[in-house]
Amino acid sequence: MSAVELTVTDLAVARGGVAVLEGLGFRLKAGQVLVLRGPNGSGKTTLLRTLAGLQPPMAGEISLPPEAIAYGAHADGLKGTLTVAENLAFWARIHGTHEIEPALADFNLQALRNRAAHSLSAGQKRRLGLARLLVTGRPIWLLDEPTVSLDQASVALFATAVRAHVAGGGAALIATHIDLGLDADIFDVGPFKADPQAPSRTPSAFDEAFA
């Protein structure tokens, strides 16, 4: 996990072809937790999806080591008919890792390991979704509201997992509204809101007629 670093320079991200955030610049280093703040609809999810490579940036640069991102979103990508262990083992195999026991232990899922995922409660599903991050073996976690439907105890489990991850040289960028009790830096996207009245800043000059 050497040289784990995510650098964002003058980044603009777009939703539905219209810029939502622009001029973003920050750096996420190994061992660091960065918490994204901003009101609903401010573009946090769009930013995370762009960083994860799921959509192209409108402008600017993202520099990060290849295959470093583990993305966790609202949907956990769980299959209801598979058991907890099977779900986790699948993602472990996809990422070329094989050890799922530590992940099960960290999120207190051992007792549930043979339950079908559809029989889990919302919070249990969430924990399983977060356990998936551990089996990816990826250094940079990009998390979108990871604590939704988690109870106090589970939030603490999650915070511990994040702490262990960054202590091991990883990094995490987390969009969340609650205080996780982590030693985290705060990055507020508010000031970077794209000005809807400004002339178009789409990458193509041809777009100006659409503005």
Partner: peptide, 16 residues
């Protein structure tokens, strides 16, 4: 093109 322009204006307004 005019429809696209209207669409872009609407989006902008919604964003504002």
């Amino acid at each position: 093109i005019r429809k696209r322009r209207t669409h872009a204006l609407e989006l902008r307004e919604r964003m504002a």
